[in-house]
Simulated scan of single mutants.
Amino acid sequence: MQYEGVLRKMQTEIGSPIQYYLVFEADFLNVNQVLDKTIKIDLKKFQCLNCGNDRPIYRQGFCKTCFFEIPSAGDWIMRPELSTAHLDKEDRDLAYEKKVQLQPHIVYLANSSNIKVGVTRKTQVPTRWIDQGAHEAIEIVEVPNRYLAGITEVALKDHIGDKTNWRKMLTNTVDDEDLETWRNKLKPYIPEEAAPYFIENNAETNLEYPVLRYPEKVKSLNLDKTPNFEGRLKGIKGQYLIFEDNTVFNVRGSEGYYVGLSIH
C-alpha cells in the first residue's frame, strides 16, 4: 500500500479502542489496520498548511511568515487567557477570533502521564483528550468563552500541573489519581467569574488506545534529521505512532511535512 501527502494530525473516532485515520488530499488510511505491519516514511518536501508553499515548517504546520501573520496561530491559541474577542478587541482578525473564542469552552482534568488541567472548545471533547494520550478525563467547568476558560486554567495551575510528560505517557508509566476527588479539591480556586459554571457531578470518560506493546524507553523520530525511516508499528497513542524498536513519531508535531508512506 502506497500513500503520499502532507501530514496533518490524525483524525480520531471514539471506540474500544480508539480508531485513528491519516487523511491525505486524495486518500485516507485507517492506521489501526496496519498495526504489526512495517511502515516506511520518506520525507519529500514541506507544504505549509496555510500558504501551501514548500518552505521549512516553523511551528504548528506553518512556515515562519504564516505563523506570525495568520489568525489561527495567535498567542491566544496556546494561552487562552490572552483571548480578547469578548472585549471586541482584535489580535489579528476579529471575525475569526470571535468565531473561535466566543463559544463554549471546557476546563478539564486528565490523566495522561500524571494529572493535569487543560482547556478545549466543547466541540473538541473528547478529541483533545485523545490527542494528549489521556486514559481518563473529566470536565470541571463549562464557560461561554475562551477567556474565562483561560483564567480558570491559570488559577488552577498554581495547584496542579498543566503539562503531559509525553515519555511517561508513551511508556504507560502513569500515576493514577482520582479525578472526581481532584475536581472537588480544586473547586475553591476557580476564579469568581467562572465559579457559576462549575460542573458538579459528571462521570469521567475512559479512553482505550490501540497499543500491542508499549516501549520501555522512547526515542523520537525527527524527519529533519532522519528523512527516511522504516519500522514495525506496535501502537498508536495520543498523536504518536509507536514502533517495535522504541522509536515514536509525533504526527501532529510533523504537520506540514509532505511524505510518502509505504506499508508492507
Rank of each mutant, 00 (worst) to 15 (best):
D75H: 09
A73Y: 02
E90M: 11
E4Y: 05
D162S: 13
D42R: 11
S16D: 08
A195G: 12
V251E: 05
I151M: 07
A137S: 11
K163D: 04
G74Y: 02
P196A: 09
I14N: 06
S220T: 13
Y258L: 02
E255Y: 14
E81I: 11
E230S: 15
S262R: 08
A26L: 04
T38G: 03
P56Q: 10
I57Y: 09
W129F: 05
I57H: 13
R55I: 06
G231E: 01
G231C: 00
N246R: 09
K9P: 00
K44G: 03
K163S: 15
P17G: 12
M78F: 12
L261G: 07
K187E: 15
L82A: 12
E153G: 05
I41N: 12
V117R: 14
L109C: 02
D36V: 01
G52M: 01
L102N: 13
Q2D: 02
T164M: 00
L29G: 08
G238H: 09
N30P: 08
K64Q: 14
E204M: 06
G253C: 12
S220C: 01
T205K: 09
L82C: 09
C51W: 02
E230T: 15
K99S: 07
T173S: 06
T120Y: 00
M169Q: 15
E177W: 03
L233Q: 04
P80W: 01
L22I: 13
V6A: 10
E204C: 10
G235P: 04
E193G: 01
G150R: 05
A155I: 01
N222F: 01
N206T: 10
